[in-house]
Design a protein around this nucleic acid. Sequence first.
DNA 1: CAATGTTACTATCAAAACGAAACTAAGTCA
DNA 2: TGACTTAGTTTCGTTTTGATAGTAACATTG
Lengths: 148, 148
Amino acid sequence: MNDKNICADPCPIARCLAFLGDTWSLLILRDAHIGLTRFDQFRKSLGIAPTILTRRLATLTEEGMLEKRLYSERPPREEYVLTAAGRDFLPVLIMIGAWGHQYRGEGPLVHIQDVETGEDIKPVAIDAVTGAVIGTRSLRFVMPESDG
Amino acid sequence: MNDKNICADPCPIARCLAFLGDTWSLLILRDAHIGLTRFDQFRKSLGIAPTILTRRLATLTEEGMLEKRLYSERPPREEYVLTAAGRDFLPVLIMIGAWGHQYRGEGPLVHIQDVETGEDIKPVAIDAVTGAVIGTRSLRFVMPESDG
DNA sequence: CAATGTTACTATCAAAACGAAACTAAGTCA
DNA sequence: TGACTTAGTTTCGTTTTGATAGTAACATTG
């Protein structure tokens, strides 16, 4: 991918994918939302090569999805915690999961519960303006004014 | 990535990413939702190498996101149209775009309008069970029963 | 105080994927 | 006959990945 071009792309989807369009990064964010914070936790959970994990964590940190935090002074140890931007990525992960549940749901599957009600959630994307479920009304992709 | 392991992973997010965790595939799906259907349209829109495009279109077709359709008999020409699974992927793309809009929104940006109202949409993911916005209540990831 | 363990990495290297450019195949149009 | 269109394939050099092993700093155990 030519990241340079994509970062300047006026499409917000492309801009997000420019640094997140990669399976490992998204799985790391999933695990971060589940509560993992440490290098070895991610490594064991994902079965990822440490070289790749190092790079992905660095990118996610540079891009402001994760933050390094010292959790022990002696010995000095750092963990990775979600930033606001990282936490706000949860809806994306949840919608990906919803699609996977519907179309790749054969066999045993993790499900996601509301802690208070104890029931499985039913994720739906809506347009807050009209209240309509995304996909039920026609949408139009409008190019930005090119006077900049 | 070791796709074999991930496809058997009980996490619906991982299952989706096993074949879609790639920038080009997601951008192709975005373009398909915008209305592109033909090889050269995707190639020009994305600036993607034809080798890569061929492979991505083949994967997306095998995985049931796109369908090949003959649009001309003489000469024989095929186009790629979204399947139901592909159309149902729209909420994921919209939520990715919403995140990108919020956190990578500098400069000119494509925006997405409801055709009827003409207003920009405000995408939000909610849990249809409680009606709560995703991210406002605690969630729990529940492992499947391991009695298979 | 030496041996072992823990955590978070880095080094090395073969294999796979990517990207750019040129080329092909089947047919249409003038 | 020759140019054009569409949907690719071929080739090849570069980059990225994945597996395995090793390192650095410190803690713990005997």
